[in-house]
Design a binder for these strands. Sequence first.
DNA 1: ATGCTTGCAAAACGTTTGCACAGGG
DNA 2: CCCTGTGCAAACGTTTTGCAAGCAT
Lengths: 156, 156
Amino acid sequence: MPGPIQPELFPQIREAFRLYLRRRGIKDTQARRSILDIVLDFREHFEAEQVLYALKEAGRRVGKATVYRTLPLLVDAGILKEVRFGKKQAHYEQVYGQAPHDHMVCRRCGIIYEFDAEEVIALRHRIASQKRFHADGHRFQLVGLCEHCATAPPQV
Amino acid sequence: MPGPIQPELFPQIREAFRLYLRRRGIKDTQARRSILDIVLDFREHFEAEQVLYALKEAGRRVGKATVYRTLPLLVDAGILKEVRFGKKQAHYEQVYGQAPHDHMVCRRCGIIYEFDAEEVIALRHRIASQKRFHADGHRFQLVGLCEHCATAPPQV
DNA sequence: ATGCTTGCAAAACGTTTGCACAGGG
DNA sequence: CCCTGTGCAAACGTTTTGCAAGCAT
């Protein structure tokens, strides 16, 4: 269900990041490029720690602080989105060229499903215009039980 | 805009908590009652640290650990709800006897407005039944600029 | 050349836990 | 009276920061 990313898009995304950095007047460094590359390979949601680990795996020597400093840039560049699932850590997912979607989180087993955000965006616009709020984004999650947990016997 | 709570409801809420504790077979202690009382006096969203501080102010000697252990009980009892605004800390707000609502968060100044959740709940049900997910709750926030920040000149 | 960026380690932060003592049922 | 709940302090995991050295522009 979750959206993998087509490798054909990679060059386009790298270019978008390069342009973003130039536009913001910040440097196009090796570390930042490495982080982008690692991040493009994730299929699902991931957290900073996983980026750090994958960088080590790939033999790229990038420090933890740099990861934490770069992820917000990728968010600002429109390549990633920060998603919070009620845990303390931030999670991220790719958004570049992906259809907008939101998440359903099973309270029992933690599984996460995605669903199309079209209707949510329509509702967002309706509410924002009523309240004179200039909404350009939203966070939306359904919380409950997945089909399996809902029919399974009560926990031990 | 945010929902203050009517003091007339206080006894009813205290009673609800007492019943909740009895039903769960856990003790109705002085510390737990103190925390409930403090929490009822907040008008807006608050975090654990503020509860701790207000307890000190009120001369009630309650430890930090007890606050962190009690807030989830109040959530489970249906008196509070945990709300996350993308920060690392949890925020809480009263829900007992309050109309369901969600939040709009201004990205620039951080101001938070509430809006009625009726339409959101309807949408939640529609999506959940399509996806065979048993949703009994949701998290929803609009993110953008409030009227003031949208018309103000760009930041310094 | 110069100043943003990096990596490291240490600090900060909110939250959780281990433990001996206190207090509710 | 027993056993849960408490307070303290220390541990925890994530994120941020200070700083000297490195590297884009």
